[in-house]
Nucleic acid binder design. Structure first.
Lengths: 341, 341
DNA sequence: AATTTATTCTAAAACGTTTTCGGTTTTTCT
DNA sequence: AGAAAAACCGAAAACGTTTTAGAATAAATT
């Protein structure tokens, strides 16, 4: 409510001088700077971001775009952790974070791009969304600095979890534990799933493992009911797998339930593994074997690179950034090597 | 980038007319309104929120204040669900949501109140934070519309989960299942804990249950290691409880682990219950008995009332709003009545 | 026809900043 | 001491809106 005008009056200087003093410009003396700042604190002055944004075309505000279809937005463990890390990082540089309104409630709703411009975001981070949506594509192709998570666009910064390496590590580990009959219930079709599935097959081939068609099934991510049903199918096979991989940890618990329904023990009778490394997985028994994605790193790198792109567009190298996950061994994959019996 | 000025030029009318046409004011003819709107769409015009906010002192942006101490902000299941519901609700009214930067990284960082003013939030929702923090108190006592979650300030809107009723329902259920030796490991001291603890004692007294001191212990919320240790202590007692209540579901799993460590079965040998109703609790075995907090409702009511307060300050009744939780029976509390044996 | 009333429009100020450019004053150099 | 350079400051325009007060025109009333 107390503006630069008031402050200028109180200091007997011009508004211009006040502005420069507060912004630490070089053409104002140390003495007046000191005076203006003291007075500012005294009167309880603080700037108005709207006016500043209007004038400078910089909002110091970053938008985050995600769609919480089926309750899987903010409550999505992986994404929430990424976002949390992202937020902590940009806060160090004095940015705020705005969740972009993505409801299409009236027919005149803005597109994502329009809304980003409307709010004047300095940059946008995009995650957890259908990347083939035309609105998303338009936003990515605009001149607004953008970073995507787990999806690569041409000539844009992306931070992606190394699903190829993750799946390879997981399969190698399972193989090393003696398993040769490995089933994989994968998630619904998107780029993440594709990376994992192709890595699964590649690794199996390299290891000389044959994967019968009926060992490959599909369920949605976080869909415990789907994995339960698929798991039951797998257990019905005349030659059931000795280990089942799930789309993610959450969905994995659906599979675990199915297995126990059948009176089987984990990992004595059958082994399982998830993907993600959700927090709770390390706190409940059996501790789920999984690939822990480095959400901390993903969020931080996304933030750092987006800010670099915003503040130094010319000197920022635009490329996808890989973040490796880490195998968490847990206790759901049994060692069934001969010598271990 | 195309502004009202451009639009005015293209339409051969004044800027004022354009503004009024787009805002559907009464003193502009239907014909020009139509014309302006058509032209606006044609040129790809959209407003600039900073300019609008500067002029009107309304940002159509709501701040959310929470502190993610110990990773328990966005990744906090209860809060994430509340926030998700909150967001969906305000989006229907065309508001955006900004997570207020609450890092104190340099000594000149703004206070919460200053930041709220700086950004020009129309309102702020406060949750998951130390409500005794002076900065929070200052914000609450300012003239900015505010709603708090799970904490009541005088003369401010609050949406709170009915912990008294929740705990009463839970204890009654446990009692009804035949339990008389009920232990309670409660969370660290705050208003939520106080409600639950006092309700626990009141209900026990009403039921004529004696609660020995050593049945009451403390662990932090979501602290699986703490609950593990406290649980082991309880099991060492010469007269151990037949049922243990935990601070929350997440922490409850720490207790479950401890119990299994000792080779005991749930619920055959000992019963347990949590509090919250986190999603995963319904997907893993054993299904944890708990009080499911109605996060959907809490978020929605907080949003609706905050917006009402923003848009119609005079006619909004200011009072705490109670939201009841629901008993989820799960399968971790055994029926130990004589006839059930 | 003259007056009033209603309708439709515009000019201009204002919101709180930043920035450019020019003008003083002070310091430094010869 | 005088000139050149450096340091410091202010007036004013601009960013994209909304809003007020009034002007111009059209319609309705006497």
């Amino acid at each position: 409510m107390v503006s630069m005008k008031d402050l200028a009056a109180a200091c007997n200087v011009s508004i211009a001088t006040v502005s420069k003093a507060l912004n630490d410009q070089h053409d104002v003396s140390a003495r007046t700077k000191e005076m203006v700042r003291r007075k500012a604190k005294e009167l309880g002055y603080f700037p108005n971001s709207a006016a500043k944004a209007l004038k400078t075309n910089r909002s110091h505000n970053i938008g985050v775009l995600f769609v919480d279809e089926a309750q899987s937005g903010l409550t999505h463990d992986f994404f929430a952790n990424v976002l949390d890390s992202f937020k902590r990082t940009i806060e160090l540089k004095d940015y705020d974070l705005t969740l972009v309104n993505c409801s299409k409630n009236h027919n005149n709703s803005m597109t994502y791009l329009e809304r980003a411009r409307y709010r004047g975001f300095d940059g946008v981070v995009i995650a957890c969304i259908d990347f083939r949506d035309q609105e998303v594509v338009d936003l990515v192709n605009s001149n607004i600095p953008v970073v995507t998570i787990d999806y690569i666009f041409n000539n844009r910064i992306a931070v992606i979890s190394d699903n190829v390496k993750g799946m390879r590590d997981l399969v190698n580990y399972v193989y090393q534990m003696g398993h040769r009959k490995i089933a994989y219930i994968h998630g619904n079709d998107n780029s993440v799933t594709q990376s994992r599935v192709s890595s699964f097959f590649t690794t199996c081939t390299q290891l000389g493992i044959e994967v019968p068609d009926e060992y490959i099934k599909q369920a949605d991510y976080r869909d415990t009911e789907g994995t339960r049903l698929r798991t039951l199918e797998l257990l019905e096979l005349k030659e059931p797998p000795t280990c089942i991989l799930y789309p993610d940890d959450f969905a994995g618990f659906g599979g675990i339930n199915a297995i126990r329904e059948k009176g089987l023990r984990i990992p004595e009778d059958i082994s399982v593994a998830g993907y993600d490394g959700i927090r709770i997985g390390r706190h409940i028994e059996p501790k789920l074997t999984t690939i822990r994605q480095d959400t901390e790193q993903i969020g931080r790198l996304a933030a750092e690179n987006l800010i670099k792109l915003i503040e130094h567009p010319r000197s920022t190298i635009i490329r996808p950034i890989m973040v490796e996950g880490e195998l968490y061994k847990g206790s759901t994959v049994a060692d069934i090597n001969r010598n271990a019996e």
